[in-house]
């Protein structure tokens, strides 16, 4: 047994109910359970009823919002007069914020294109299917890769003065460093939690954090000429 095991093993411990079962899962594959004994509920009527109630509550909330707040409607479209600032719908304001810093090919085409590609390949990207913590194995080498990726990104964002994207990057990078210093044996629950996070979690969290900060910036903190404003001070 000099070689590392190439499978994980686990035992079904509920021996009273069922015969003892041992499962062997080859590494780098995902187990699919073909049959199970879990409690199930008939979709009719229970699940349908719950869905209907959920949709009704949503409808009631939206009706109230619609009664209280009017949708914006400005003057007739005038191609000879550009309002300042001219803002896209809120879900594109992150994109517009990026367009403030980078040329359209980078911020408008390359970046969203890469995001969509990344989202599509996520499930086919079969690295670390066991979802181990990023730094649980091979810690030093992974730390080196982490520095090699993060440092150029931080320098790049700093070079172009993209503070709104730099801050979330630094925060997530800091948490990842904390994770690298933590393990399943750490005393605080938060550090144990961080230590167990896999790479995909960190990438997605970074993306979500960037998305929220950049969108919020574009929505609330940008005024005439795309200058920085405070939402509580009218411009």
């Amino acid at each position: 047994m000099a070689e590392a095991k190439d499978f994980v093993a686990a035992i079904d411990s509920n021996a009273k109910k069922s015969p003892r079962r041992i499962v062997f899962i080859t590494r780098r594959t995902s187990a699919q359970v073909k049959a199970e004994t879990e409690d199930q509920t008939q979709s009719f009527p229970e699940v349908l009823f719950r869905a209907a109630v959920a949709i009704q509550l949503l409808a009631i909330a939206l009706v109230w919002i619609s009664l209280l707040f009017n949708a914006p409607l400005e003057g007739l479209a005038d191609p000879s007069h550009t309002p300042n600032p001219a803002k896209a719908p809120w879900y594109f304001l992150g994109l517009q914020e990026m367009l403030h810093y980078f040329p359209p090919v980078v911020a408008g085409v390359l970046a969203p294109g890469l995001v969509v590609m990344a989202l599509i390949v996520i499930p086919y990207f079969k690295v670390n299917i066991e979802a181990e913590g990023l730094f649980t194995k091979d810690r030093l080498r992974r730390l080196r890769v982490f520095y090699a990726v993060t440092a150029p990104l931080v320098i790049f964002l700093g070079w172009f003065h993209v503070i709104v994207a730099l801050v979330p990057t630094l925060i997530v990078a800091g948490l990842m460093l904390l994770a690298s210093q933590s393990s399943a044996q750490s005393s605080s629950a938060f550090r144990r939690y961080l230590a167990a996070r896999p790479l995909s979690y960190w990438v997605m969290t970074w993306f979500l954090f960037e998305l929220m900060v950049v969108t919020a910036t574009g929505t609330f903190f940008r005024g005439p000429g795309w200058s920085w404003v405070w939402p509580w001070k009218p411009y």
């Binding site: 699919q32 199970e36 299917i129 066991e130 979802a131 144990r192």
Partner: peptide, 12 residues
């Protein structure tokens, strides 16, 4: 329904 290792590191 996923392999135990996926659920959480500590349980695995």
């Amino acid at each position: 329904s996923e392999p135990a290792a996926v659920r959480s590191r500590s349980r695995a």
